[in-house]
Design a protein around this nucleic acid. Structure first.
Ligand code: MG
Ligand code: MG
Length: 1203
RNA sequence: UCUUCGAGCGU
DNA sequence: ATTACTATCGACGCTCGAAGA
């Protein structure tokens, strides 16, 4: 164990009497440069402005990735260099050697049996540069206590000893200062708040702030003037301005973040945590080597710290029937002495282990248990009390001194329980769970579970890695309990132990399982890479949560470019104080998904059905990140000043795209960096693949981490709690996405004359109508090239070719994808999206049957055979179900709890809640996010389905419960299969029901595809009375060439005059047909023009708001009226109006529609046919004003427009 | 058909 | 010795079931 003390600021403060503006702040730290021989750049410049600073103590060693950035040019120049000659490889290998090496590591491991080896100061590899001593320190975790120890942070990591081994070390950085930026007003405010008109100087600001400091007991501070930029939500902050930069000790009180004064309008950085400002100032990007200058070694031991190891544990608890608290009964743990982030995980199951159990009050430890454990060579400790058990565990933890603690659900349960129990059992050495020695335990949350502030601070210095949390981020499975994860990830079987069996059984495998899962998922290396990319703290990355990672990424980038970053806001507090808000919050509290704040990706209306020709799937590579780059979308480039600052405005006024000649903004640059690095690692990955396993692992993971980071950047822009929240930007990105997809679709349809059958956000599916694979591929490449032509960075790619495909609904389809094997052969892989088969809320039986049906449908068998096979299979399954030949596991349905069972409003109609409540009575742990399994049983009652839901265990125990076969046939299998077979001819809902032995007649009229095609709806319109249909159209006004009277054209037959409509009702002379024709054509053009003017109006009768929208807004989304905020904006003149108008003209000239018995002159008939044809031509041909009406109207039938 | 609640797939 | 805390959770689009109207 070792501690280095280190002053963040070596010196005293500038005194008040001095000039406000110090000019010697650019003091260079030259030694730093020479010390860091690998990098030619000054790695850190922070605090350079501070007066009188002696020597700053910490230097970031050259990060590995920055070296790659530097050398990436090299690889681009000579791309085809042979591997052996590649300098870059040498560089890599050389750099890797800087990382701890296992052979060296072992020397420390040999001390394992001893207690903490007392490493003396002189044993450390202290070096001297220019007469100054320094030490290199690899940090991987940090801790601060913002309430008790302000301005102090603890860094945990490793140092090299003189023997070239590595030892754990804790670095304490003291006297970290706050950095506050004060934005001066232009003119001074009077005491009553009115503008005095007097200009404000920096000196004025300084003086007012000094007074405020006096009031706040901030006796010493330093200040200077800086120029800073700002590009965030506050509208009244200028893009660039002079600020008064104030530094004072973080130990002194914090200034309110909403502080304003007569001479200044904003104060930034008041509540920035010391850790954050430390990381930002020193540009520390995740775990890395730091060079510490002038370290001071303390005389006392303050922390427990030793060699690097990984420990995984699992524990069993029992609920005390009196207190209803969880008490710990047993803990098992396994260890690995040498885990490396950049190497494959250890192969052995464990290197060290121990098991500790305790006696229960009512039960004895089973006979022969000790012998059994001894026989198995298991290190068993039996404690008499819970307190003894905990103490033993702590002693072990301290002895092993793990850097990483692993377990399953330890963040959600185990660690919090352990701390609570240590609290109630008064275990004094509790702080051994972490690496800082403390006496008073931090205040634990009242409810057991979770991983709150107290848990995090208690475990400081040890990385907590929860297999459950990691799995949730990395894979999707039915359930995230250890049993399911073990079977999915490790393909192994785990036996769970119920509450009533705890006294008799014990399972020591859980810790091993959790550890292997973490290894298998590569969770730790991935977390490290992400941390290195975004520059936050590894222990926080491991906790999950995208938002914080993204914040650090942006904080680093923006502060490097001299921006004042937005502060954390705590305005929730103010809202809570309102009385009515409180009630409201409790009601809607937990789960209900927020209603969307802006519109997202476009989903093309699928052309449903079964396809047996080749289908191409084209997909834009990471669409949103690329859009941000391609269009230079950034907080700094998009002008959002015209948007109302009001948070509640629902309207979606879009910003303009930044002008193309603007310099690239910060976000595009970040993404560019991420993409370049990803490419680099992608190349390295491919080139190194035959070389060294550990490098392969590292680079593959690193490029994955880069991708994850890039993708989450967009999401965090739209996250309302983010410090960098920018809804307009997110809306702009998605809107561009919609535009690009629409354009691509139109290009394929209109220029390449291909059929687009579907598309979702960033993809397009094309029906090649070909059965030749090469032809399909060629077509795909052509389309790809054509689309890519119109973009600079954006790139569409062939994501798959489907041999056959069943397209059911938006986001629901199945296909046989062609896969090229390594040996050149082709194989088919089933690809399933969104179908019931892939969802966990249908029972396995229904999914299996559905899967069978699907396989048949996709196969190239004949239609009759397919249908026959499905029918006979269904009959078979129906019989099996009725005769009870099917395993109970197949009937289990899973549903996740999204809140605590008691919080559900309508418990009775929810099966999973019914079961969850029962589980609670059984003392089983039921947590938010857990998947509850249940089966529907026939208990003889006629109750609700939900009330007949039982836990599988409950079913197994009971003799009276029987599976409700009818439910499973009618409500599980039938809907699933029925939906799949819907587009297949030769079978239908009723037939499927028949096969399953259900009453087919009930399903006669039930169709799952809700055949409400828009065209059908339009057909229905046709049958409306003509008056009804044409009540809103403009009549055709024709002026008589003779009597000049203008009349509405009456149609083929004028009912009032009982003559042809071509005859003027006043003077009985004939109209000129050509005149009418011209009039009609010009009228139609007029209406088309009106339509394209895109006038929008509010549909609320009490609101007369009108506006014009951008052309790409016509796609049928509703937009909330910005004026009244109640109504929606609709097109004043929609496609449908236009369509109806033209239909009306068609009707006027439709000679065949007039009633029989009315004789019409042949000439007149010909005239009408002529006019009718004119209108028809306009509709069908692309002749006028470059507008394709038939295409426009097609959207009325198939597109998203619904009016 | 709407609403409410509840699921969790999709990008 | 005293006192006070927290606040967390990427976005949006689409389908499906139960219950009440
Ligand atoms: Mg994509
Ligand atoms: Mg896609």
């Amino acid at each position: 164990m070792c501690i280095c003390h280190c002053n963040a600021d070596g010196t005293g403060y500038a005194d008040h009497g001095r000039e406000v503006f110090d000019d010697d702040f650019d003091q260079e730290d030259t030694e730093m440069d020479s010390a860091n021989k690998y990098s030619g750049e000054v790695v850190t410049e922070r605090l350079a402005w501070v007066v009188n600073i002696e020597k700053y103590m910490i230097t970031v060693m050259k990060p590995i990735q920055s070296m790659f950035l530097a050398s990436s040019k090299k690889t681009q120049n000579n791309k085809n260099v042979k591997l052996e000659n590649d300098d870059l490889l040498d560089d890599i290998l050389q750099e890797i050697e800087l990382l701890p090496d296992s052979s060296i590591k072992q020397e420390i491991d040999s001390h394992t049996e001893n207690y903490i080896p007392a490493v003396k100061h002189w044993q450390y590899n202290i070096k001297f540069v220019a007469g100054e001593k320094y030490i290199d320190f690899f940090w991987f975790d940090a801790y601060e206590d913002p309430s008790l120890q302000k301005g102090i942070i603890y860094l945990f990591g490793k140092v090299k000893t003189k023997e070239n081994a590595y030892a754990s070390c804790c670095l304490i950085v003291k006297n970290i200062e706050r950095d506050i930026y004060i934005l001066p007003r232009k003119t001074r405010l009077d005491t009553d708040g009115s503008d005095s008109g007097i200009e404000v100087t920096m000196k004025d600001v300084y003086e007012e702030f000094s007074e405020i400091c006096n009031k706040n007991k901030i006796m010493t501070f330093r200040s200077r003037v800086t120029k800073k930029r700002y590009a965030f939500e506050l509208k009244d902050v200028p893009v660039e301005s002079e600020y008064l930069h104030v530094k004072y000790s973080a130990a002194l009180p914090q200034i309110k973040s909403d502080m304003q004064g007569q001479t200044f309008s904003h104060v930034f950085g008041t509540n920035t945590s010391s850790l954050e400002s430390f990381l930002l100032h020193n540009k520390i990007m995740g775990p890395n080597w730091l060079r510490i200058r002038n370290p001071q070694f303390p005389s006392q031991k303050v922390s427990y710290c030793r060699s690097e190891t990984i420990l995984s544990f699992s524990m069993k608890t029992i609920i005390n029937p009196k207190t209803h608290e969880n008490e710990i009964v047993a803990i098992a743990a396994v260890t690995h002495q040498s885990f490396y982030f950049d190497k494959p995980p250890p192969k052995s199951l464990f290197e060290g282990h121990f098991v500790v159990i305790r006696n229960l009050v009512d039960h004895n430890i089973p006979m022969g248990f000790r012998d059994f454990m001894k026989q198995k060579n298991i290190n068993l400790e039996i404690s008499s009390t819970e307190r003894a058990l905990l103490s033993f565990w702590l002693a072990k933890v301290q002895q092993i001194d793990p850097d990483i603690i692993v377990g399953h659900n330890i963040c959600g349960f185990d660690i919090d329980v352990i701390l609570h129990r240590m609290n109630t059992c008064k275990v004094s050495l509790w702080s051994r769970i972490g690496r800082i020695k403390r006496h008073a335990m931090p205040k634990l949350s009242s409810t057991v579970g979770g991983f709150g502030f107290a848990d995090r601070s208690a475990c400081c210095g040890r990385l907590i890695c929860d297999a459950k949390t990691s799995a949730k981020e990395l894979i999707r499975v039915k359930s995230y309990d250890l049993t399911e994860l073990t079977s999915y990830v490790l393909k192994a079987k785990r036996f769970d132990i119920n509450q009533d069996e705890i006294a008799d059984k014990f399972n020591s495998m859980d810790a091993t399982f959790a550890l292997r899962i973490v290894y298998e998922l590569n969770a730790l290396p991935l977390a490290l890479q992400i941390t290195n990319i975004v520059g936050n703290v590894l222990s926080r990355t491991l906790l999950g949560g995208r938002s914080e990672r993204n914040e650090f990424l942006l904080l680093h980038a923006f502060s490097e470019k001299d921006f004042v970053c937005p502060d954390k806001s705590f305005k929730k507090k103010q809202q809570f104080n309102e009385e009515f808000e409180d009630h409201d919050d409790a009601a809607k509290s937990n789960n209900r998904r927020k209603k969307p704040a802006y519109s997202g990706g476009l989903v093309l209306e699928p052309k449903k059905g079964f396809y047996d020709k080749y289908i191409l799937l084209l997909d834009f590579n990471s669409l949103y990140p690329t859009i941000i780059q391609e269009f230079n979308i950034c907080l700094t480039t998009v002008d959002r000043h015209h948007l109302a600052a009001d948070e509640n405005n629902d309207n979606e006024l879009e910003c303009e795209y930044p002008s193309p000649d603007l310099e690239p903004g910060v976000l595009p640059l970040i993404l560019k960096g991420l993409v370049e690095r990803r490419r680099e690692y992608g190349h390295l990955y491919l080139r190194l693949i035959f070389l060294i396993h550990r490098l392969v692992l590292q680079y593959d993971i690193r490029q994955k981490a880069l991708k994850l980071t890039a993708n989450s950047l967009y999401g965090c822009l739209g996250f309302s709690n983010s410090r960098f929240y920018a809804k307009p930007l997110a809306a702009l990105v998605t809107s561009k996405g919609r535009e690009i997809l629409t354009k691509a679709k139109e290009l394929v349809e209109n220029q390449m004359l291909l059929e687009v059958i579907y598309g979702d956000t960033d993809s397009i599916m094309i029906n090649t109508n070909s059965t030749n694979l090469d032809e399909a591929y060629n077509l795909g490449h052509k389309v790809k090239a054509e689309i890519n032509k119109s973009h600079r960075l954006l790139e569409i790619d062939i994501d798959g070719v489907f041999k056959s495909m069943l397209l059911l609904k938006k986001k629901k389809y199945a296909a046989l994808a062609i896969q090229k094997n390594e040996d050149g052969t082709l194989s088919e892989v089933k690809e399933l999206k969104g179908l019931d088969i892939v969802r966990r809320d249908w029972c396995q039986l229904a999914k299996d049957v559905g899967n069978y049906a699907l396989s048949q449908i996709l196969s190239s068998d004949s239609r009759e055979n397919i249908v026959d096979k499905i029918h006979s299979y269904l009959t078979e399954v129906g019989d099996d179900v009725r005769s009870g030949r099917i395993d109970i596991d197949k009937y289990v349905i899973l549903k996740t709890l999204s809140k605590s069972p008691n919080d559900y409003p309508d418990k009775k109609s929810l099966p999973h809640i019914h079961v969850a409540l029962w589980m609670q009575t059984e003392n089983r742990r039921v947590q938010i996010g857990d998947a509850v399994p249940y089966v529907i049983c026939d208990d003889g009652s006629q109750l609700n389905v939900a009330q007949r839901a039982f836990h599988p265990d409950q079913f197994r125990r009971s003799d009276s419960l029987k599976i409700d076969f009818k439910y499973y046939l009618a409500y599980q299998i039938h809907p699933v299969v029925s939906r799949l077979c819907d587009p297949i001819e030769g079978t239908d809902s009723a037939r499927i029901a028949d096969c399953l032995g259900l009453d087919g007649s009930q399903y006669k009229h039930k169709s799952y595809s809700a055949e409400q095609n828009e065209s059908d709806a339009m057909l229905g319109d046709m049958h409306m009375s003509l008056e009804e249909q044409f009540k809103n159209v403009e009549p055709l006004k024709i002026s008589c060439p003779k009597c000049k009277v203008t009349e509405d054209f009456a149609g083929a037959y004028n009912k009032t005059t009982k003559q042809s409509g071509l005859v003027c009702p006043h003077c009985n002379s004939n109209y000129n047909v050509v005149t009418i024709q011209n009039k009609v054509v010009s009228e139609i053009r007029k209406f088309i023009k009106t339509y394209y003017q895109n006038w929008m109006q509010c549909d609320d009768p009490s609101c007369d708001y009108k506006m014009r929208q951008a052309p790409y807004f016509i796609s049928g989304r509703t937009i909330r009226c910005p004026a009244c905020e109640r109504g929606h904006l609709t097109l004043t003149y929609s496609e449908k109006s236009l369509y109806n108008q033209i239909l009306y003209y068609q009707h006027l000239f439709d000679i065949d529609q007039i009633e029989k018995g009315i004789r019409i002159d042949q000439n007149i008939k010909a005239d009408f046919k002529n006019l009718y044809g004119t209108v028809n031509k306009i509709i069908s041909r692309n002749g006028y004003s470059e507008i394709n009406l038939s295409k426009l109207f097609q959207r009325l039938f198939t597109g998203p427009a619904k009016r």
